[in-house]
Design a protein around this nucleic acid. Structure first.
Length: 338
DNA sequence: AATAGGCCCAACCGCTCTAGT
DNA sequence: TACTAGAGCGGTTGGGCCTAT
């Protein structure tokens, strides 16, 4: 295969912005005769353009059913949701938004939505919480901002308020993920760098319940697994000694925008399917079935942030010796390049 | 008022896919 | 089956516009 682009070899063909005269020629021709073969169209329509350029101009600009103007909130949410399902399949996404072109949606994504997700700490490619440690390094600022809300949210859009709460929650989850990974890597022949510090950190970090997650349980579980040379986490096949790990999820409930579909992985304790879709995705509720079994089921989507209010995030974050301290120390760990 | 930097978006480029021969 | 033409798609670019200094 592989052939030269259609415009190659068409010397003297005009490029660049279209004039109103050219637009009129193209519109008149297509409205009268249809586009037919795009390759032959320019000649028939009296245009000094290549067929590809004509097609693009028509589909992206001149088509009569094109909707102009700002994207609505609903359109924005739909794009985000569809992108989480389809990825950069702009043409497929465009079919669900009447009057919008793939090019327009692509541009809007790259200039607005992508940045919006990044600000929320969500990876715009995977639609999951960003896993790079630079996010954890920025947590102190995030926590400070969260603390400044003071619960009133005055002057702040509800969306931003909820997004920030979600971001904090995601950060908590990521922290757990990182901790478990760091700790359970000890099952490998060479302990992970910094593991000793993390163990110590957990030991001195109050050891109590934080956001429904008992750090002692976490620590004990990891130690137990280490001693018994077991996979760090498992999603099925109840394993003796795994009965405590389900407690990790007590703080995350259906509807809080944070969910997990595969609580599994081996050795590296990869909780690979943690999904955060604050907009449209159905919730996935994880349950402790006892005996070390954790099951997850999809529940109908409700309001994206239902359940957030019940998490007592601010109390949780501002408690001395609580998550705030822990996160700050973790960010220090990161900046020290362990 | 001038200018630098960032943003936005129409248009182009190059690749893949599909249908026809 | 192999090849080609045509169409479509996603990534990238360039220039105009806007905003901050």
């Amino acid at each position: 295969m592989g052939r030269s682009p259609c415009c190659d070899g068409e010397a003297g063909v005009k490029k660049g912005p279209w004039t109103t005269e050219e637009d009129k020629l193209l519109m008149d021709y297509i409205q009268e005769k249809g586009h037919g073969s795009w390759r032959r169209l320019p000649k028939l329509a009296g245009l000094n353009r290549c067929g590809k350029s004509c097609r693009l101009r028509w589909t992206n600009y001149l088509r009569p059913d094109i909707k102009r103007g700002r994207f609505t909130d609903d359109e924005e949410k739909l794009i985000m949701h569809l992108h989480s399902l389809l990825g950069n399949k702009w043409s497929s996404i465009a079919t669900k938004l009447p009057g919008r072109t793939d090019n327009e949606i692509k541009n809007y994504w790259n200039t607005h939505l992508r940045k919006k997700l990044l600000r929320m700490g969500i990876d715009p490619v995977t639609h999951r919480p960003r896993t790079d440690l630079s996010m954890l390094a920025g947590l102190p600022g995030l926590l400070a901002a969260a603390g400044n809300f003071g619960g009133s949210g005055a002057g702040t859009a509800a969306w931003d308020m909820n997004a920030l709460k979600l971001q904090v929650d995601v950060a908590k989850f990521q922290l757990l993920q990182g901790l478990v990974r760091a700790l359970t890597t000890a099952a490998a022949p060479a302990p992970a760098p910094g593991m000793d510090y993390l163990m110590e950190l957990l030991a001195v970090s109050n050891g109590g319940q934080h956001g429904g997650v008992d750090q002692n349980i976490l620590l004990q579980q990891c130690q137990w697994n280490h001693m018994n040379n077991l996979p760090a986490l498992t999603s099925s096949a109840p394993t003796s000694g795994m009965h405590n790990i389900s407690g990790l999820f007590d703080g995350f409930s259906a509807g809080d925008g944070l969910s997990s579909t595969e609580l599994g992985g081996h050795g590296g304790a990869s909780w690979s399917k943690v999904t955060v879709d604050p907009l449209m995705a159905d919730d996935i509720e994880c349950k402790n079935n006892g005996g070390g079994s954790v099951s997850c089921e999809q529940t109908p989507a409700s309001s994206p942030f239902d359940g957030l209010e019940s998490l007592n995030l601010m109390d949780d974050l501002n408690t001395d010796g609580g998550w705030k301290d822990l996160l700050e120390q973790i960010s220090w760990l990161n900046s020290s390049e362990l």
